[in-house]
């Protein structure tokens, strides 16, 4: 970063990226104490902490990070509906990770190569996200090309979350990104991983009446409310509590 004053980051863009990271971080944190094996619990917690770090920086660009995280109502969150989807079984968590981390990887690569208020942050985050994508891809291969049951569960998870992927490529105000190129790279990468995992890219509707996704406009799915209640209740019950 140079010393010249950077232009104020666009609020809508910082909120969108920050909320994606915050909400997915919380979802991954829900695996603590429940992950199938200890080693994987640590891996998921590491990814959650990377995302929380990104969320803190992004939300701080907009205002007070604690107020934004803990005192906003559901409708004020701007995250993708994909990241608020429940963990489900391990396959569903991995499918969500594959879809989202691949999106974040190509998005942050573009932002890191550009010249905006997000350049420095994206350059740092892209290394973290590359690992998240690697983790998701390796698990997709093992589950897809594993046992008959793991294959079926992975296929089901990829299909179930597919309708939430269209929203990722709707332009976010204030982000200088080639959204078309982003979608092409994403699709090629995800299709490649799924193919190696003996799975196929779902071809269900991502547009039209069946298309889900208005998270960026503040409309969220049913599981988001309970998640938010759990995430916010401590701060709301004991304002200013610290430890």
């Amino acid at each position: 970063m140079n010393d010249a004053p950077v232009t104020a980051p666009p609020r809508a863009a910082a909120l969108a990226l920050g909320d994606d990271a915050l909400v997915l971080s919380h979802r991954l944190g829900e695996w603590a104490g429940h992950a199938p094996v200890l080693e994987e619990e640590v891996a998921l917690a590491n990814i959650a902490l990377d995302l929380l770090g990104q969320a803190r920086i992004l939300l701080s660009l907009v205002g007070d990070e604690d107020e934004l995280a803990y005192l906003r109502e559901e409708r004020a969150f701007r995250n993708l509906q994909l990241v608020e989807q429940p963990n489900g079984d391990f396959a569903q968590t991995i499918a969500r990770q594959l879809y989202f981390s691949t999106y974040q990887l190509f998005l942050y690569r573009q932002l890191a190569a550009g010249d905006s208020a997000f350049t420095g942050l994206a350059a740092k985050a892209v290394k973290e996200v590359a690992y998240h994508q690697d983790h998701a891809a390796h698990w997709t291969l093992r589950l897809g090309d594993g046992t008959a049951e793991s294959h079926e569960r992975m296929a089901r998870a990829c299909g179930a979350l597919w309708r939430y992927t269209g929203e990722m490529f709707e332009p976010v105000e204030g982000l200088e990104v080639d959204w078309r190129a982003l979608e092409d790279s994403w699709r090629e990468s995800v299709a490649g991983v799924l193919e190696r995992a003996t799975l196929t890219l779902p071809d269900g509707p991502r547009s039209g009446a069946w298309r889900a996704g208005a998270g960026r406009q503040g409309l969220h799915t049913e599981p988001f409310g309970p998640m938010l209640a759990e995430m916010q209740h401590l701060h709301r019950s004991h304002p200013g509590a610290s430890w």
């Binding site: 094996v37 200890l38 080693e39 640590v42 891996a43 590491n46 690697d134 983790h135 390796h138 093992r142």
Partner: peptide
């Protein structure tokens, strides 16, 4: 030491457990 299904995953688990 750690548990992992194969060598590639063992490397990744090792990265998370011992080099963070």
């Amino acid at each position: 030491s750690l548990h992992a299904p194969d060598a590639e995953m063992a490397l990744r688990n090792a990265r998370d457990l011992y080099t963070r």
